[in-house]
Design a protein around this nucleic acid. Sequence first.
DNA 1: CTCTCGATGTTCT
DNA 2: GAACATCGAGAGG
Length: 196
Amino acid sequence: MSTLSDLTPLPRKFYARNTVEVARELLGCLLLRRLPDGELLIARITETEAYDGPDDTACHGSRGLTPRTRTLFGPPGHAYVYLVYGMHELFNIVTDRAGYPAGVLIRAVEPIQGEARMRMLRPVPRRNLANGPGKLTRALAITREHNGLDLTTVGAIWISAGQAVPPWKIQCGPRIGIDYADEAHRLAPWRFWISS
DNA sequence: CTCTCGATGTTCT
DNA sequence: GAACATCGAGAGG
């Protein structure tokens, strides 16, 4: 049958473990977005990055609990959305356990359903529609209003399992845009993507 | 294709 | 006041 047959949210248990593991397994999963007018947008996750706790100098949580990072310190399975560079909203999923700041940044998705609407929200050619962390939030109308949202229940945003990705199609490498981090964390291969 | 650079506003020092 | 988990335009190859 259709790959869209099961749109059930992934359970909290899925997120409540090591964030690197979760980042890898989120590849191929579906990101679902129910717009205020009822339209359902569906996108397949194709690139992720793991941020792992207080000792990871690339992780926002490494500088302590602040108003911005409050949700990152909270229980897993919630959305952590924040603004960077004064104009881009970035969508993350909180992982591991409460009190331990860890999460997965969703860096790229590809449209599965509702592409026409996505291209109204972000009018560019398909190949550039959602292939970046600031692009996909625009195409899916995800904003800081969604910060803290529980992703394990059906609502404005949730994640479902999608179709498994063969291990040989999964690549990994250093994370992007974290030159400020210590060398070990700059080089850690915690970025994952599906090879095309 | 590559590289460089400016935009923009929130957060933390 | 500096830095920032980015993007797109413009110049050059």
